[in-house]
Write a protein that binds this DNA or RNA. Sequence first.
DNA 1: TTATTTTAAGACAAAATAGTCCTAAAACTT
DNA 2: AAGTTTTAGGACTATTTTGTCTTAAAATAA
Lengths: 150, 150
Amino acid sequence: MLLSKSCEYGLRATLYLASLDDDTFTSIRQISDKLDISYHFLTKILQQLTAKGLLESFKGPNGGVKLAKSGKKIQLLEIVEAIDGGELFTECVLGLPGCGMKKPCALHDKWMNRRNGIKDMMESTSLSELSEQSISNCFRITADKGLEEL
Amino acid sequence: MLLSKSCEYGLRATLYLASLDDDTFTSIRQISDKLDISYHFLTKILQQLTAKGLLESFKGPNGGVKLAKSGKKIQLLEIVEAIDGGELFTECVLGLPGCGMKKPCALHDKWMNRRNGIKDMMESTSLSELSEQSISNCFRITADKGLEEL
DNA sequence: TTATTTTAAGACAAAATAGTCCTAAAACTT
DNA sequence: AAGTTTTAGGACTATTTTGTCTTAAAATAA
């Protein structure tokens, strides 16, 4: 598994927010219901994103969270690194602590290429880009069974 | 982290065995010492590989484990799938259980390409190929600090 | 036969990840 | 002012992963 559950949930939630494309606050309860993610767990994850400035939050009725900037300007990589950390794109595939340019492990070069490819993919894709595709192609962000909502 | 610790250890151990390039049994104690991996933990991992037919084992003095076939004929993918399972190369990057061709998630196509790339890398690389590189380029399989051994 | 070396197998413990629950604080509503 | 809705934050539990320990069984050696 490349991404932690927390990261998967964080991505799905922010993709959902991007798909709404409005500037009002959306309650975490609504997001967790739509995406079928534990409300309390999702709350903690989105708190992290708020703390890192990727989301803004507001308390009280009509409160909730929203993207801190346009979904067009948030790349997937920002979300992933905020939750799983940047080590994902620097660490050795064999887990050797000292692996690097100077002392590469056996798989270093091959893995680095693939790893950079994944990083590129996430760095070059914005939340909006992906959530628009999700709508136009009936791609799924939510975990529900079918296409009845679109 | 793409691979579990168990899988990292399993790969390093089998790469080490391939580098020895002999047909005798190597004790797990020796492997765990060389690679600085917990002996008991490594034992369990190598037992899995033995159960799946990738290793052969033998008890008693001069016993140990060895590759069941030539390291040239064992691809990295076989080790990885034996330990972490094949789901690594089929599962959705967002963790959506029903994600697939028919109902792809938002990231499905992009991720599938990258994932297949990683799979290709592991499928097209044999243990011997990699362990030979490790020796000729002083690449590291073991976890020790320097190059003093080579 | 007895002791030694090694893998096999399972119980157990520790750490990391995932998930739940409760109370507080902020903002709003009446 | 009092009650309601929502995020914030912490304690707590459950599960999975990682790691340790002990005993058994197989093979060898004395």
